[in-house]
Design a protein around this nucleic acid. Structure first.
Lengths: 102, 102
DNA sequence: TTAATATATCAAGATATCTTGATATATTAT
DNA sequence: ATAATATATCAAGATATCTTGATATATTAA
């Protein structure tokens, strides 16, 4: 039950649904790119990424000073179904902007 | 997005997950039976039923002074997948008790 | 080493949700 | 009509979640 509720509460927020869909659409992105793309302050993005990661939707790969987030793979069937349902929502997403000085 | 979040927030609560699973397992039940089975006060049960109904999971049939709640049918694929996932949780449910003077 | 950059985390106020007890409405029994 | 029963709804306190701004940590550049 706890894991189920953690999974559900992770997607019970419009911002996180958008971030999840954005990553599902654009593939691996770093925090500063999400910051720039969504025009949200860093602590906000960071917090939501943590929740999505701990709910099993995302994975992180730290390379240098960047943290790259992507859809966790393999993903269990239920989370896949959730991603599919979110894809069907056809949410308007911001365009991918690079926010880091690379 | 609004309908999606309404669906998700409806199952983002342990009490409602249990009630939903209970109805899925026992079939049509009235409010007083849920009250007796879960040992919860009536306003609490009633509120959760309303949320589950408005999220599209339940339907009500009023007969006499009773309100009988059951799983809405037909149920769209996504809500079916959610019910299936909840069934897999193997939650310990209370036994069905009749709480009404019928 | 010092500065700059990227990310994470914490504290506090704002907002939303849950529970309870009281009350309202509707149906049936007397 | 009056009383009893079943359900719905509201108000208020308790609890949880979200956002922001400040600060901490880690990596790279100068």
């Amino acid at each position: 039950m706890d894991i189920f509720l953690k999974t559900i509460s992770a997607i019970n927020d419009e911002t996180r649904v958008k971030i999840l869909r954005f990553i599902d659409t654009n593939g691996e992105v770093c925090v500063c790119d999400l910051e720039a793309s969504f025009d949200m302050i860093q602590s906000r993005i960071s917090r939501h990424l943590k929740i999505l990661k701990e709910a099993g939707f995302l994975r992180v790969d730290r390379r240098g000073r960047w943290a790259y987030y992507s859809i966790r793979s393999p993903l269990d069937v239920f989370r896949q179904q959730i991603l599919k349902e979110i894809a069907h929502l056809e949410i308007a997403l911001p365009s991918l902007k690079s926010g880091c000085n690379r």
